[in-house]
């Protein structure tokens, strides 16, 4: 299974140069860039752990790349993503978000069905990885 959240998940994994180019694009637009990681990639898990605060006022991608590589060193088997935040009025949200590290293999998700009235079904998506406690999921 390949988790396809994020802007570039259908492309081959980005090289560091490609990641750096995307970060440059974000910085040129004045967006704050941040790094987040998780071992619970459920599609509704909005709050991945922050690897430090968002980085404001950076001029060069090298600073973010340092954080990316530090995050990879600390969490080599977690999902790690780079987010870019735009504080422009009327946006005030992410403008780019892409995965830069993933576990191998990626176990994926199961679908739990609860049959209820009138043939209707209540669906629950469950990550196989979250059978294990946090921190022991992708060994």
């Amino acid at each position: 299974m390949r988790l396809t959240q994020g802007t570039f998940s259908f492309l081959p994994d980005l090289s560091d140069d490609q990641i750096s180019n995307q970060i440059e694009y974000c910085l040129e637009n004045g967006w704050a860039v941040s790094v987040e990681y998780t071992d619970d990639p459920h599609p509704r898990n909005t709050y991945w752990e922050m690897f430090g605060n968002p980085m404001f006022d950076l001029r060069d991608a090298a600073g973010v790349m340092k954080e990316v590589s530090a995050a990879r060193t600390t969490f080599p088997n977690h999902y790690i993503k780079v987010n870019a935040f735009d504080a422009t009025r009327g946006v005030e949200s992410l403008r780019l978000s892409f995965i830069v590290n993933r576990p191998d293999p990626e176990p994926g998700f199961g679908l739990v069905r609860q049959e209820v009235d009138g043939r209707a079904i209540r669906y629950t998506i469950r990550a196989y990885a979250t059978d294990q406690p946090e921190g022991e999921r992708y060994q």
């Binding site: 299974m1 988790l3 396809t4 599609p43 509704r44 998700f109 679908l111 669906y123 998506i125």
Partner: peptide, 10 residues
Amino acid sequence: NRASAATGEV
């Protein structure tokens, strides 16, 4: 829902 589980996306 099947597609969501298969990809991890909404």
